[in-house]
């Protein structure tokens, strides 16, 4: 038994999950992601323009979900990998987002580590594979 996110509900969030489409507040100019009806920064603006996030950011905090502690819909993944990292990332446009970290480096995950978003399989429900974004360590430039 997993957290139930129906296909229609998931579909309504496709622009966030697939393309990281965010809202720029026309009142204060700050970027909201995931979307809000009222801007979470100025608590006033309710009109937005859509912008695409770069997917680039830095690790704000991190954890490693142990196999036995994974939510049931991620249990198969956890038993396969043993455990998996989850990170809270501060994106360069301002918002923070939470997602899994893939391809972690050999060294320890740390606050401030640069990462970039990648499109990945998230989990499967109602026979449909749900895709979305995860993060991976940013390539050294």
């Amino acid at each position: 038994m997993g957290a139930h996110i129906s296909i229609p509900m998931y579909q309504r969030a496709v622009s966030q999950k697939y393309r990281m489409l965010a809202q720029k507040c026309l009142h204060c100019g700050k970027v909201n992601f995931p979307p809000k009806a009222v801007c979470k920064y100025c608590l006033t603006g309710s009109k937005f323009e859509h912008i695409q996030l770069s997917g680039r950011g830095k690790i704000y905090s991190h954890t490693i979900i142990a196999g036995g502690g994974a939510p049931p819909e991620f249990a198969a993944e956890a038993s396969c990998k043993g455990s998996y990292p989850v990170v809270l990332v501060e994106l360069e446009e301002g918002p923070k987002v939470i997602a899994q970290l893939v391809n972690p480096l050999d060294r320890e995950i740390s606050v401030g580590m640069p990462v970039t978003a990648v499109f990945r399989k998230i989990y499967e429900e109602e026979g449909v594979i749900r895709y979305g974004f995860k993060f991976m360590p940013a390539p050294v430039s």
């Binding site: 957290a3 939510p71 939470i98």
Partner: peptide
């Protein structure tokens, strides 16, 4: 649920 949980977190 939509974001924290689907990141595989508890």
């Amino acid at each position: 649920t939509e974001y924290e949980r689907l990141a595989g977190s508890t």
